[in-house]
Every structure is written in C-alpha cells, then in structure tokens.
Design a protein around this nucleic acid. Structure first.
Lengths: 332, 332
DNA sequence: TTGAAAGCGCTAACAT
DNA sequence: ATGTTAGCGCTTTCAA
C-alpha cells in the first residue's frame, strides 16, 4: 500500500507538502498540481488511522440504539449517517437490544474509538447510571430522557402525543380505553403519564399494561386482555412494535376495527396505512430527530461550556379508520 | 486521556507488559494483577487508532448497501454487525441510494479505513465496473451478482423463486400475469428471467415492466397498467418496495385481492401478513445472508488464494390469501 | 511557501 | 517473563 512518502518522492516534494495538499493547507499552485498528479499516479489513499492518531480527533460519531431493525431507529440512524458523512464524519452503530451489559460494552468501545461525540438512546436503567459516571465526549440522548440537565437531548413530546390519542378516542365515543406501554424505556413512562392524565381529567379509569416492547409481548398481552372481564373497547399501543402486536391480535381474533376494538398507536410505519381501515398513529419526525441530534452535537462541540439543551419535538397525529366513531349497540 | 505509559508507571512495569496484558500475551500472574489494578485505577482505555496503525490491521468490515431503510438491508446489516462484533470487529455502514457516485466515494473511504474486508450490494452499473479495477481487500457481494468468478457472493436463487411464484399463480388459475421489476440491480433481471421462462414454457405471454425500485414507482406503474387494455389479472412485484407500491395501488383503487387482482412478491416484511387477505411472498433468509457473507469473508481472509465461491440460498414461499384461487366470472 | 524532524499511542522485534 | 526501543503513517511545529 502506498504511503505519503511514496507520493512525496514521486512528486519531488517533502511529505509535509503532500500533507498540506491533502488537508487544504497553503501550497503553491505549481506544487499542488505536481502532488495531485503524483497522488493519481500512485493511487494513494491516506491512512485514516494514522491521521486520527496524529491529529487527535477521530471525526467519528457513535450511535447506540436498541435495535436498528426498529423502523424508528432505522430512520433516525439514516438521518444521522447522512448528516455525519456530509460533515466528513463517520458513524459507528451499535445495537444494545435493551441490554445494559451491551450498553456498557459499547460505551467502552466509544471511548476506545475516541469518538468525537455520541448519540445515544439509553434504556431506563442506563439512563440513571449516566449521572454516576460522566462520559468523555459530548453526548446527545435521543428518544429517551436521561438525568435532567446533564445531557443535550432530543425527544418527542410524549405526554402530549399520548394525550392527543386519548382525547381523539374520547371524542369518537370510546370510554373504556386501555394502554399498552413498553417497560424498558422512559418513553413508555411518559406516554403513560399523558394517557393517564387525560383520562383521569375526565374522571375515567386508565387501565394500563407495561410489557416488553416487542410485537410478541404486545400481541400476547392484548389477547389476554380482550378475553378478560375488564376488556377495553379501545387500545393505545405506545410504540410501533406493540402496535404491530395489537394489529396481529386483532387479526387473529378476526375483530373488525373500530367496531370490535378501536386501535391507535405510535410510529407511522409503512404498514399502518394498509391494514384494515388504516391505523391511527402519532407520526414521529424521525428525520428531524436525527438531524437535530447531530446539530446539537455540533453546537456542543463548538461551545463546550453551554447549558444542556433539550429539544422537544411534536408528533403529528394521523387519523385513520381504526379510530372511527363508536357505534352504539342497538337493541334489536 | 490516560495512555499506556501512565498505566505502566502506575503498575511499576514497562509499557510492553501492559500491552501484553491488553492483548493476552505471556505475563506472570503477579504482574498481570498489578496491571489490571492499574488499568482500573486510571480508567485506561486503549486507543484503537494507535493500535490499528501499529498492528496494521483495522479489524473493520465495510458494509455498502443502497439504503438501510429497506427492511431487507436492515435485517442483513443487523446480522452482519452481530457477527462482526462477536468476532471483535467493527462495521462501517454506507448507504449509496443506488447512486454510482456515492458508491465510488464510499469505496474510496473503505480504502482509507484500510478495511479488513467488504460486504457490498452493488448496483448493476458498479457491478460491471468491479471487474475493471480490483479492490485492495476481500469483497463479498450480497443480493446482487457481480462479474462471474471474481468475487465471493451470497445471493438468492432469484430465477427459481420468481418461477415458484408464477407457477403458483398458474395453478391458482391466473393466466394474465404481469411482472414489476427493479431496474437498478441484477436481481430484477434474474427474477424477470425466472418469471419469463416459466410463463413462456406454458406458451403464455410474460408482460413485464422495469421501474425504479421504489414504492412510488411501483404504485404509479401498476395504476397505469390496471387502467390499460392489457390489464393483468395477477401481478408479481420483484422486491419489497415494489410490492408496497402494488399494495397501495390496490388499496387506492379499492380492489379486492385476489378477486380483482392477485398479488405476489418478494420480501416477507412485517406488513405483508396483515394487509387484506395476506400477501403471498418469497421470504428471503435475511439473517443467513448476513452471517453467510461474514463467513465467506472470514474464510477468504484465512485462505486468500482459493477460488471465488458463490452461495446460492433459496427463498421460502409463503402462500397467503392474495393469491387465492381465481374465481371464474359467472354470467348473470 | 517549503522542508526537516518530532511524536501521536501503541505493538512487536529484539535483548536480557 | 520482562524491558528497551524502533517505527506504523501521518500532521504539525519549527526553521529557513
């Protein structure tokens, strides 16, 4: 593999001059042309490890999420990567599967890579641990809240979004509204809070179940619930996976939405518009979440001392047939 | 940031001994314990850039796909990343958007990162270019074929899979079977070949459209086609995006599957089982594709000289209601 | 504007 | 088993 020294010899200049051409330093037009010719002739490619070691910055962003296969994180990570590559930075992506041990492992990896900054969706457990041992690099939390005031963050207005869904269901005539919430992240907690607040403000019960944020868990829980005496006539699923589970339960029981059960949830995944009469959802601004996180990171890098900033983005309700008006039972 | 030298001083040993502890070299139990204590005391984390530079291997795998938001690539990349981290390697992920310029850019990046190996889903254009200028590292092509015999590859038996869908539709009584194929990759070409072969073997026409592999393009094309005189009574979509477009067209026109139009396609995405009577699809072994690609890469690294290997995996047909038996029109 | 030379943090070759 | 030291490829003083 050809090194900078080879290019220098080929061009008849010093390695310093080649380096200056590479990094956009001051070089006379004549030498610059010579060097560029030599680079092309030799097919030279700078060694990024050497460059990072010497320059003491990695130009690398860490991105830690629970599972890239969750379409929310897929979309966010794509936005993050685009923004990073545009800024001449790379991204290291890690999947924790909501497993605190993996989180710790990857956090260590981030140190070893000397990342410039980190974008992180922590579990509830590690969000707490974050206040104990501070990290060596600027960190932006996404999707989930951390210890107040410690980190920049970009989150959804979860309580408001959940409240919107509840109030829509109330307007449509539903009164027995149940909620399915994820039990590993703070988003589940916040969405539950908005859900419970809106219902209790109307003097209604707010039956809620906290389960693992997977389609299987959501499906199983809803199947159980629909067979129980306190069966709800509408249900809210607090994320895309739980909503998928709910949709599967509905299909398995052969129920029709919204007549047998009204369904609403979070995350406007491709399929939500195609299933049954269409599923009412809160669409998260996934792209903005990614780009905003990168922006907060860059801001933090240029002004390290400033106060922590928390960007709260709003979800957009997309009303579809799954929450159509409740038909009153008619006595025959 | 603490360096290996600091740990050595703290432990009262040489840097070489610390390095040996780090890399699992021969160290007496007593010194090892001292060093480990010192590492914990100082919070030392090795600098991976320095390590890579000195050891001359990056322990990094490049992964170049068109778009991580395509669930096929999402799943494959997750499998690749898990396998890589298990082997102590990192992954650099790049999205080309089927854009040859981005491909060239990221291929250069791979050189600069001195990746140990590359897993690559090339467009048709760059697949050809691959035979012109060989890469500096072992490369495994996935999903799409490259120049024969040059690279290891793991692909689906596309022609057979497409043939299976066609023959299923024929058995169900459909005769005017149209095909929607992606125009940027070799998979579209191969799936079309299997589609056309099966139909012409029965003496039937094989009307096909090659379009951009996006839901919008698929939807638009199918809407056009269904309004045309040569309207098909069954349609095959050659990937998940085109299938999504087809499902949207069906929904928009208010058609019922399979009565108004039978639909089959590729990629068993979550929603395909939930929409209408369920969509018949070819499920790709996404996880195996990722792990097999990594395996081919590791094999290649240990035996650099061997012949190129092509792993051809089979798709699994999942038959659902969208290809139910054709009802003959009944004269009233 | 250019070149010479030091050194980023680490591993590996060599010496003991 | 342990220490000493050269040097991976590059950027960045420092001098000219």
């Amino acid at each position: 593999m050809t090194r900078i020294k080879d290019v220098a010899r080929e061009a008849g200049v010093s390695v310093a001059t080649v380096s200056r051409v590479l990094t956009g330093g001051p070089v006379s037009t004549g030498l610059r042309a010579k060097v560029e010719t030599a680079i092309r002739a030799t097919g030279y490619r700078p060694n990024l490890s050497a460059r990072r070691l010497r320059s003491q910055h990695s130009r690398t962003i860490g991105l830690i999420v629970s599972d890239i296969r969750n379409p929310f994180f897929t979309a966010v990570s794509r936005a993050v990567e685009d923004a990073a590559y545009d800024a001449g930075m790379r991204v290291i992506l890690c999947n924790t599967d909501e497993n605190p041990e993996k989180e710790a492992l990857y956090l260590r990896l981030m140190q070893e890579e000397r990342v410039t900054g980190l974008i992180f969706a922590p579990t509830r457990i590690s969000a707490e641990a974050l206040s104990q041992s501070p990290l060596d690099f600027p960190t932006v939390l996404i999707d989930r809240a951390g210890p107040p005031g410690l980190h920049d963050a970009v989150v959804l207005d979860n309580a408001a979004a959940a409240g919107t869904l509840v109030s829509h269901l109330l307007e449509q005539g539903y009164r027995r509204i149940g909620g399915l919430f994820g039990n590993t992240s703070t988003t589940g907690v916040e969405r539950h809070a908005g859900f419970a607040a809106m219902l209790s403000a109307r003097g209604l019960a707010a039956p809620a179940q906290f389960v693992a944020p997977t389609a299987d868990a959501g499906e199983a829980e809803l199947l159980r619930w629909l067979a129980a005496p306190d069966r709800p006539d509408a249900v809210i699923a607090s994320n895309g996976q739980l909503l998928l589970g709910a949709a599967r339960a509905v299909r398995r029981l052969g129920l029709s939405m919204p007549h047998d059960l009204a369904v609403a949830g979070f995350d406007n995944e491709t399929w939500t518009g195609l299933v049954g009469p269409g599923l009412t959802v809160i669409e998260q601004p996934v792209h903005e979440i990614g780009t905003t996180a990168m922006q907060l990171l860059f801001d933090r890098l240029s002004r390290p001392g400033g106060p922590a900033r928390k960007m709260v983005l709003s979800g957009r309700p997309i009303l579809r047939g799954s929450t159509g008006p409740r038909l009153r039972a008619v006595a025959n």
